[in-house]
Structure formats: C-alpha cells, structure tokens
Design a binder for these strands. Structure first.
Length: 691
DNA sequence: TTCAAGGTTG
C-alpha cells in the first residue's frame, strides 16, 4: 500500500543531532542531506509548488520566523522510516516500542508544528518521496508529536492530487472526519484531476456540514470545466450563486476565470456583467480575458461591442496580437460585415502582426458567406503562398456556408475540392456534412456520411451522435433516433446535456411521458445538470399536450435549481395556453413573466392576443394592441392577422377590413396569411348579407 | 477556431 523510498546508501546516527549554529539562509530552517529531497528545493528553500501551496496552507511561514535560529535534522527520522518495512507501520502500540524508536521520538518532541508542515511539503513536492511523507504523518500520529494532523493530512492530499494519485488521496481522507482543511484539499485534488462531479459533490457535502468552500476551489473547478470542455453558463451561475451565498470575495484569478468561463460558455451578457464588475472595482482584467470576451461577443454577432472592447484594449496601451485580431475578425465575419473584416486584416498586416491559419480561414468564411467564391479562392492561394496550409476547418466553413444557403448538394463538390488540395476531411468536417444532409431531410446521405467517416477510421464524437439523433427526430423518425441513442451508449459514449435535451424532446413529441421522466432522471446519473434549454423543452412539450400542471412544475423546478427562466420558455407556455383558448391562464403566465423581470416581447403579446381571440374576448384582444402601442412595441403582421382572426371568431366580420387597413397604414406588408384572413372575412360577410 | 439541442405566435 505505502511506497517507501529505497534504503539510503549512507547511515546516520539515530538520535537527534543539533547542527552547529550558522548564519540564517533565507527560509531554510532545517537541512537534510537526502538527494531526493534536495533536488526539489530551490535556493530559498521552497519549491515552486510549495510557494503555490502557501495560498492553501495559511501563514506557516510567519509562524516560523521567530524560530529561525533553531535547527533540526530530520535525517535520522527519514532514514529510520525508509528502512522500516511498511507492515510494521501502524499496528504496534507505543508500549512495545524498541528503545531506538522511543529515543528518536523523544528527540523530536520539541520540534514546532510548522517545521513538520514544511518538511512534509518538501517531501511531497517530489512524487518519489510522497510515500515517505505519508510515513512521517503516521509516525507523528503514533507518537503524538504534532497536533495539527488536519493540516498534515491536507498537505498530503494536496500533494497526492498534484501527482495524479487521487485514489490515494481519497483513501487518506477516509482516515478521519473531513474538516474544512481536508475538504478543501480533496476538492482541489479532484478539480486538478478533472474529476468534476467528485469536486462538486464534495462542495455540496461540505456545505451540508456547514462549511463554505475555499474560493481557490472555484477557480480550479472553472479551469477544469474549460479543460474538459464542459463549460456551461448554467453550472457557472450555480457556482456563482454559491460563492455569493458564502459571501466569498472574488480575487483577481477567480474574477478572470468567471469572465472567461462565461465567455467560453457563449454567455456574452454575463461575461460583460462580470467584466464591468471587475473593472468597477478597479481591477484590470488580463489580456486573454479581454480576448475571450471579444470572441464571445463576436460569436453572438455583437461586432460593435467586440470592437469597443478591442479599442479600449488598445487605449490601455495593450498591443493586440494575432489572437485579439482574430477574435474581432470573427465578430465582423459572423455579423456579415465584409468591409470591416477586410479592413481589420489590413490593419493587422499594417501593424506587423502576421495573419495565421485562423485569420485566413475567417476571411475565406466571410467571402464564402457573401457568395464571393472567387475571392475565397484567391485567399486560399494567398494562404498557400504564405506557407500557411489550408486545413479541414476552411472547407468545413465553406460547406457550412453552402448549407446555410440551402445548397446542400454542393457538399460532394466541397469534399472533392478538399481532397484535390490534399486536405483530409476530419471529424468536424464530417459533422458539418452530416448536419447539412440532416437539415435537408437527406437521412440516407447523412447515414452514408457517418459510415464513410467510420470506414476512414475517424471516431465520431458527441456532436456526431447528437446531430444524427436530432436529424432523425426532426424527420419524424423517432424510432431510428432512439436506436442511435442506445447505440451511442452501448458503444461507450457519454451522452451530454444536448443529447438528453434531444431525447426529452423526442419522447415528448411522442407523448411518452414515462420515458420523458426516466430520461430526465438519468441525466443526473451521468452527472449532468438540466440547463435552460432542458426546462424550456419540458415546458414546451408539456404545454403543447395540455399538461399544464407538469409545465408549471418544471418552471418552478427550474427556478429552485437557481436558473433564470428565459422569455423563450414563457412564450412556449403562453402559446400553449393560447392555442387552447385558456386566456386567464395565458394572462397569468404573462404576469409571471413580468414578475420574473422579463420584458414582454412582441411574440408573447401576439400569443396573448391569440389567447383572448380563441376565448372570444375580442375586446381584451384589442386592449393588448393598445398596450403595445403605449409601450413602444410595434405590432407586426402577425398581430393584425391574429386580431382579424379574433373578430371572425365572434362574427364581427365587418370590422375586419379596417384592421387590415390599419395594418397597411402602420407600415406592415401583408403576407399570404393576412390576405387570406381578409378574404375569408369578406366571404363570411357576403354569406351573411345573402341570408 | 468550426459542428449538435429550444428559436415558438397568426
């Protein structure tokens, strides 16, 4: 079980030897001639790991300062423990000690605790002496030599975590009741080893025991989430509410981690909120944090805000490098601002920052999106001329732009051109290709692409499976979707939140409520938390089937899970009530939406008009129109068509033409549905006149 | 760096 150092070549006397006094050298309070230990220690007596550890292990350095003049030699003890066979370790009681061990223990009786802590940290900094550190702790406990065992254990757990020995860390932690110190050490060990669920569970357990977790752990968890690509706004919000609840203050690192976390999770709003908060408290975010925010803003098509942060960065004297330029360029490309995209690339070249693969790719993407294939090809050539090889990414983007224009047949051509340029399609490319076929209902092509991918030895990932499952659902082939879901699990892939959302929606559409519940429940067994989309999906499917109690329950569950309900969710609910003419319930849902601080959208109000219309309450339907006008919400063609429908429902055909007229006067262009509504009103009028 | 889930209303 325990790993001990091999016996040392030199022997030392087994009794305490005080070294002669010598001028204090920095923080080296003791010396030991063991090579395994010496190598891990820097000039000032602390390894870099130990320095980092100081954040975790309070102020031991300050406590030791007055003791600097006293020196202890731990060599005899380390030799004794190295020689001792592991089996003897714990069982023997102090009464059966041999004289040698007894004398040894007595000789260390005066050593202050902080010195033991420092010794352990040194031993732990090298993975080969962790076993020895472990033996020291057991020995100290056996002889009642050092009272803060809690701290000793936490030092060991930290060290085990850093050496990827998480299992041993857990074993060690089971030796005694977890205290805040050992809890924190264990959480940090889990986060460092990408064991997210274990870390989160421990934080929860720690909270149950009445202790807040150390804020450093939150940094480690966010970094872990990003490493394992599990970053999600929901989890971050939950973490932040815990931090707030514990009244922990964000330090520079945690603030930066929070901003980057939200940015990487695609939640630009919250990233901006935190950025403002950090700047407001006088801290300067790191350059990489700003780049992450620019990137998130660009991703959500908010190019102007991205540009503002970019400019602000320059004003603060920071010189943007390739990554920052690329982040802004991405913003322009996503927003379809081709001129700005071209401009920023020339600014980049002008300021001596060389474009990389990513820069060219984005530019090609921009031209492809604008349908300027010739310009895209020129960039492709320029890229080769600058010795930057085109890659699968470029072709994926080209394919995606064809997909978004509905030209799915071009997929084959892109694949050919790609192979001609000597670029091998990778998983991402095939994922886009499967998605392209899936979006246009070509399920056979999608499956054939999947098979081709496998035959070329490319392993699918969650995105591949999710894309396949979802496109079958969208085409109404829920049976195949379910088979694919089962195959995915059988083959050892871990479904993610998206997978479950797709399946919940699928079972919901089939009104298989038991399966909805069971699949929702099994999310937790995969360590996944339902997110806003999960709850919105649930509200939507329950609402559409008239299971309003279930829908409302989901809404409440979502709130108690600490998530803010989205307006999409309320729209789904209001719409569900509206379609059944349940106007009072629709109004209630609308009020709830306002109470939750959400602005009533045009969509919600249109649905409310529909609810009154279906309930034959045309007066109130028009009152909603009035409300819209008073609240600067411009009624659209749907608003007026719904009002006409409301009038028809109560046989007030004669009032329909004036609504139609008002619609045109307000600047709305009537569409097919609006015209049809007017026509049917006129038809009814004629019939009534004939009677 | 890309790809997948909700995106609704008449």
């Amino acid at each position: 079980m325990l790993q001990f150092l091999p016996p040392l070549p030199t022997r030392f006397p087994s009794i305490y030897v005080a070294t002669p006094p010598s001028p204090p050298r920095h923080h080296l309070f003791f010396h030991w001639p063991l090579s395994a230990v010496n190598t891990a220690v820097t000039n000032d007596g602390f390894s870099s790991e130990q320095i980092e550890n100081k954040r975790d292990c309070d102020s031991s350095a300050n406590d030791i300062l007055p003791l600097q003049s006293r020196r202890y030699d731990f060599t005899p003890l380390l030799n004794f423990l190295s020689d001792k066979p592991p089996a003897e370790d714990e069982s023997s009681s102090p009464t059966s000690l041999d004289t040698r061990e007894f004398q040894l223990a007595e000789s260390y009786r005066a050593v202050p605790g902080p010195l033991w802590h420092s010794l352990l940290k040194s031993l732990c900094s090298s993975s080969s002496s962790i076993g020895l550190a472990y033996a020291v702790v057991s020995w100290l406990q056996k002889h009642n030599l050092c009272f803060s065992y809690e701290l000793l254990y936490s030092i060991l757990i930290h060290a085990l975590g850093r050496s990827e020995k998480l299992y041993e860390a857990f074993l060690l932690s089971q030796r005694q009741t977890l205290t805040p110190l050992t809890y924190n050490a264990l959480i940090s060990a889990c986060a460092r080893n990408n064991e997210l669920e274990k870390a989160l569970n421990l934080i929860a357990r720690m909270r149950q025991d009445g202790y807040p977790s150390d804020f450093v752990n939150y940094s480690l968890i966010i970094q872990c989430l990003m490493r394992v690509n599990r970053i999600d706004s929901t989890i971050l919000q939950k973490l932040y509410s815990e931090i707030e609840c514990d009244k922990l203050e964000l330090d520079v690192q945690l603030s930066n981690d929070m901003i980057v976390g939200f940015a990487k999770a695609g939640d630009a709003n919250r990233a901006m909120e935190f950025l403002a908060m950090v700047q407001g408290s006088g801290l300067s975010p790191k350059t990489s944090t700003l780049v992450a925010v620019i990137s998130a803003l660009g991703d959500s098509g908010r190019a102007w805000e991205a540009e503002a942060i970019f400019e602000e960065m320059k004003d603060n004297g920071l010189k943007p490098r390739t990554r920052a330029f690329n982040a802004l360029l991405k913003g322009y490309v996503k927003a379809g601002l081709l001129k700005d995209a071209e401009f920023i690339v020339s600014e980049m070249e002008g300021s001596g920052v060389s474009p990389d693969e990513h820069t060219y790719s984005l530019l090609i993407d921009a031209y492809a999106n604008a349908g300027r294939w010739e310009s895209a090809r020129i960039v492709l050539k320029e890229m080769e001329a600058n010795n930057v090889m085109p890659n699968s990414y470029v072709f994926s983007r080209i394919l995606a732009s064809y997909r978004d224009k509905g030209e799915w047949q071009r997929a084959f051509q892109v694949l050919r051109e790609m192979k001609n340029s000597g670029v091998r399609p990778d998983r991402h490319f095939y994922n886009v290709m499967i998605d392209t076929f899936g979006k246009f209902n070509c399920l056979d092509h999608a499956m054939a692409t999947f098979d081709r991918m496998l035959s070329e030895g490319i392993q699918p990932d969650n995105v591949t499976w999710n894309t396949l499952i979802d496109c079958h659902c969208k085409a109404g082939r829920h049976d195949i979707a379910e088979e694919l879901f089962e195959e995915m699990i059988e083959k050892g892939y871990s479904p993610c939140t998206t997978t479950f959302n797709i399946m919940i929606n699928s079972f919901g559409e089939q009104e298989r409520w038991d399966d909805v519940k069971s699949v929702f429940g099994s999310m937790r067994s995969y360590g996944l938390l339902p997110n806003t989309i999960t709850y919105t999906t649930l509200v939507d499917i329950y609402g559409q089937s008239g299971r309003f109690n279930d829908a409302m329950e989901c809404l409440e569950d979502m709130k108690s899970a600490g998530l803010r309900p989205s307006s999409t969710m309320y729209n789904a609910l209001i719409n569900a009530y509206a379609q059944r003419g349940l106007s009072d319930q629709a109004v209630n849902a609308f009020r709830k939406m306002q109470a939750d601080g959400l602005k009533p959208s045009l969509l919600a109000l249109n649905s409310l008009i529909n609810a009154f219309g279906e309930d034959r309450r045309d007066g109130e339907a028009f009152a909603v129109l009035q409300y819209m006008k008073e609240n600067e919400l411009k009624p659209d063609v749907v608003t007026y068509t719904t009002l006409m429908k409301a009038l028809i429902r109560v046989d007030k055909f004669e009032k329909v033409p004036s609504v139609y007229e008002e619609m045109i006067l307000s600047g709305c262009t009537p569409d097919r549905k609006a015209r049809a509504m007017l026509r049917s009103a006129l038809r009814y009028m004629k019939q009534t006149l004939r009677l």
